[in-house]
Design a protein around this nucleic acid. Structure first.
Length: 828
RNA sequence: GCGCGAGUGGCGGAAUUGGUAGACGCGCAGGAUUCAGGUUCCUGUGCCCUUCGGGGCGUGGGGGUUCAAGUCCCCCCUCGCGCACCA
């Protein structure tokens, strides 16, 4: 009598074997076709929770499947190991961030092994490893050389909770820090930036060719936010209403130059540098008061549309000239104009813009429509298309033109007049990378009193973090108090210099780790061009949709910039060919997270049901792209199924007692057909990431084999063996332990080294099929027919069928639609 | 407000080109075997009616196209996600 299924006995053994034998280690000279599967490297926060397990199960399935398909699969793992939580833990528990992080990496690594996920562990990359930091700093300096890094004093997002600046991308729509939830303040500080805006157009254009979820592509397009329009100067008017030529005009940006004749006022942002210059003496107090009020307002108030509009702007006392009409119009400040976009000043056209309409109404400014609204239009500002009206001047007449035509004519006129030109604007801002934190990669710059800002020479990299640090909740980076770190030598004059104490945003680390995986032991360069060409772009990248903008955009920028400075292959324009964004696991209706304390730990489930049952439940419960509630998982059903497979496949099973040999019967042929159909289905389902239906197909086939072993004259040994072998093989990527164990027990060797089974299309052909008989589109009968039945025969059989005749009662059909052999529809 | 995505049994979900709606699993019901157990194996299971032959209804709601609609078109409702004063 064979032993029962015992996952606790077999799973650790297989996991150890994959490690010992280096089954999923791969060399850069591997002869198989290269295929790069990558799951986003995790932040090591402790043991894996079910959300992790789900993500890494999908990746692992693909690694194993592609390997069986004959590819040489690169399956690396690493850790995004810099970041705030380690530093907070250090302050709270007096443990060094390095120790805390290393311990968490150990725990998470072992979690990943216990779910049976396989990697080339030798290639492991950790952000905080000096061997990796060295090249993060090297890239910074190369970008510095190439003019892609700059330092600027600029208004920045300051999070009082994290005590650091944030990138725009890390501030949510309500002006809150996306990590701590604190209200973000605006401060002026000297900060380091990556010049991602140099790549705005290319980052936008190349989205088209990516095999990424539509949603993610849209989010990136919106974030980059390209708009086309015109930039031109508004001359400042003197007391008589004439344009002054002793003062520079006020540049404004608009996407609707066609509506210029409707500009009845102009607006500057309250922070605009020319506010003082353009404010008259009698308005000075009102303007100053307004500026103070606005700066005291949080973004949350400023962005809300609820506040009274008349409180949100102030007249400067000055006028500008509308170049289209030659008339003077008043110049206001208003908080709805943003200093960070365009020129920080606008021409206001209330007839065609609702914000301008509201403002004009509140301040009693007149409104001129320049686009004729539809006849039934009863709204306020009209933003739809229509013929231009009220738009004729001395040298320009737009009347009657539709928007597009009027636009290009207006731009042409502006440039002919020397006033302005066509202009493309992007919403995308440069990437602020400085962080006032300890646990990050130091920015390799020193400041010399005589020579100024100096890059650290490449042969002095990496600039490492000192370990003898005292963590105090001062809100400032401990690096600022560490003399040994601070004191440096100027590489130019050898004089005393002070080291930069800011560290890099952790998104810098994750912007190139996928390249390092291609060549992780290289100590001459971040990675060789050959290694990068071999593996990149990543064939399949897997991660959460929460990285749709930040990480994915930065990584795309780095890849392009690295290629352009010659560090990466010239032709490598995109890092991730295909992207799959898996859904998250919810618990009690909300996202599972450490801070919410609603984590489900996989250990108990693995100890009870086993890793294979857990993996199978993950695959079965929902399509991988969708969010899933933990309450919907069906571990017991999966355990039951694996037990059934075990009983069916284990040598010496009582289910094999009636096996016969000799002649092949119709039953055997049918099982053979089902076996090939199984292979076809699983191949297709794995290819299209339809794992829930893949599991259904396995279960269905095992049910077929269960019925087969119980037929009267018993199953044919050859047919049964082939069916069981195929079942185990298609299950192997999903449940690698049990499949490997049973395959080996049956004397078939190592299932994970076996080739993916191929189905024979000839075997899928059936002789008979069920023909559906409908009357007026309603199902009335089902009849077994030969697949090659003629239309005439099909019609005759259908019309004569019992089900059809119940309705027809001998009457002649008006019409018969025949789709032999599947369907006949009789129109009565 | 704008842009995407989705609404199918008690539940999670299937349904490649319009062609048998509800695969597979959970749950539930009945039976068999065990019978202290989370055992195993069969059978049934969309709703309503039924003389047990079958009939009617049914994929968020309302229209439409078609011999035929979960699938295509129009309008509406609900939920989820993203963006949101970007001139």
């Amino acid at each position: 009598m064979a032993d029962g299924y015992n996952p606790q006995a077999i799973e650790p053994r297989w996991q150890q074997r994959w490690l010992d034998e280096g089954t999923y280690e791969i060399g850069n000279d591997d002869p198989r076709p290269p295929y790069y599967v990558l799951s986003m490297y995790p932040y090591p926060s402790g043991p894996a929770h079910i959300g992790h397990v789900r993500n890494y199960t999908f990746g692992d399935l693909l690694v194993r499947y592609r390997t069986m398909q004959g590819d040489g699969v690169l399956s690396p793992i690493g850790f995004d190991s810099f970041g705030l939580p380690a530093e907070n833990a250090a302050i709270k528990n007096n443990v060094h961030p390095r120790e805390y992080t290393d311990a968490n990496i150990e725990t998470l690594s072992s979690s990943l092994r216990t779910i049976g996920a396989v990697y080339d562990w030798r290639r492991q990359v950790k952000s905080h490893d000096p061997a990796y930091m060295k090249w993060s700093q090297w890239i910074f300096l190369k970008f510095y050389e190439a003019g892609l890094v700059f330092r600027a004093d600029s208004p920045v997002n300051w999070c009082p909770g994290c005590q650091t600046v944030l990138a725009n991308e890390q501030v949510d729509a309500e002006g809150l820090c996306d990590r701590s939830g604190d209200l973000v303040e605006r401060r002026d500080m000297e900060q380091w930036f990556y010049k991602i805006t140099d790549y705005a157009q290319e980052l936008l254009d190349d989205i088209d060719d990516l095999d990424w979820p539509h949603r993610v592509k849209t989010m990136q397009r919106n974030w980059i936010g390209r708009s086309e329009g015109a930039e031109f100067g508004l001359p400042i008017a003197d007391a008589d209403g004439n344009a002054r030529d002793d003062v520079a005009p006020l540049p404004v940006y608009t996407t609707r130059p066609d509506t210029g004749f409707g500009m009845t006022f102009a607006v500057m942002a309250p922070e605009h540098p020319r506010v003082d210059e353009l404010t008259t003496a009698d308005q000075a107090v009102a303007v100053a008061t307004f500026q103070v009020e606005t700066s005291a307002k949080s973004d949350i108030d400023r962005l809300s549309t609820s506040g009274a509009i008349d409180k949100r702007g102030v007249f400067t006392g000055s006028h500008v000239v509308n170049p289209f009409t030659g008339q003077t119009v008043p110049l206001y400040l208003a908080d709805y104009v943003l200093i960070t976009y365009g020129t920080g000043a606008i021409m206001a056209v209330p007839g065609q813009d609702q914000r301008d309409w509201d403002f004009a109404k509140a301040f009693g400014i007149n409104i001129v429509r320049t686009v004729q609204p539809d006849a039934d239009f009863d709204g306020e500002a009209f933003t739809g298309n229509g013929p231009a009206i009220n738009s004729a001047g001395v040298s320009l007449d737009l009347n009657g033109m539709e928007i597009a035509e009027a636009k290009s004519n207006a731009i042409e006129w502006l440039s002919a007049q020397g006033l302005g030109e066509a202009k493309v604007n992007f919403r995308l801002r440069d990437w602020l990378l400085s962080r006032q934190r300890y646990w990050g990669c130091p920015i390799p710059i020193v400041y010399c009193d005589t020579c100024g800002e100096q890059p650290v020479p490449l042969d002095q990299l990496p600039v490492e973090l000192p370990d003898d640090i005292e963590f105090l909740p001062t809100g400032q980076s401990p690096l600022q108090f560490h003399e040994g770190f601070l004191n440096a030598t100027c590489p130019n004059c050898d004089g005393p210099a002070r080291r930069e104490t800011d560290t890099m945003d952790t998104f810098v680390d994750s912007s190139w780790y996928f390249l390092r995986f291609a060549d992780p032991f290289n100590d001459e360069e971040p990675f060789s061009l050959e290694a990068a060409s071999r593996w990149l772009p990543v064939d399949q990248y897997i991660g959460g949709v929460e990285h749709a903008i930040l990480h994915l955009l930065y990584a795309r920028f780095f890849t392009k910039a690295l290629a352009d400075i010659g560090a990466a292959p010239k032709e490598l324009r995109e890092p991730f060919k295909r992207l799959f964004t898996q859904g998250m696991v919810r618990m009690g209706g909300s996202k599972m997270s450490k801070s919410k304390g609603n984590l489900v730990a996989p250990e108990a489930i693995i100890a009870d049901a086993g890793a294979d049952a857990l993996r199978l439940a993950i695959l079965q419960v929902k399509p991988p792209a969708e969010d899933v509630d933990w309450e919907d998982f069906q571990i017991d059903g999966c355990t039951r199924f694996l037990n059934r497979v075990w009983r069916l496949a284990v040598p010496g099973s009582d289910m094999h007692s009636t096996v016969r040999d000799g002649k092949v019967t119709d039953d055997d042929v049918e099982i053979d057909r089902a076996t090939h159909a199984l292979i076809e289905r699983l191949t297709h389902d794995y290819d299209r990431w339809s794992y829930n239906t893949a599991v259904a197909a396995m279960m269905e086939f095992s049910n077929v084999l269960y019925r087969y072993v119980q037929i009267e004259n018993g199953p044919h040994g050859v047919t049964l063996d082939a069916g069981i072998a195929a079942l185990l093989q298609v299950m192997a990527p999903a449940v690698p332990h049990i499949a490997g164990e049973l395959f080996e027990m049956r004397g078939l060797g190592d299932i994970h080294a076996a080739e993916w089974p191929v189905f024979d299309p000839a075997k899928l052909v059936v002789a008979t099929t069920t023909m559906v008989v409908q009357v007026n589109g309603k199902l009335r009968d089902r009849i077994g027919v030969a697949v090659d039945i003629s239309d005439e025969d099909a019609e005759a059989i259908a019309v004569a069928s019992e089900g059809a005749q119940r309705i027809l009662e001998g009457a002649t059909p008006r019409k018969v639609i025949v789709r032999a052999p599947k369907l006949v529809n009789i129109v009565a």
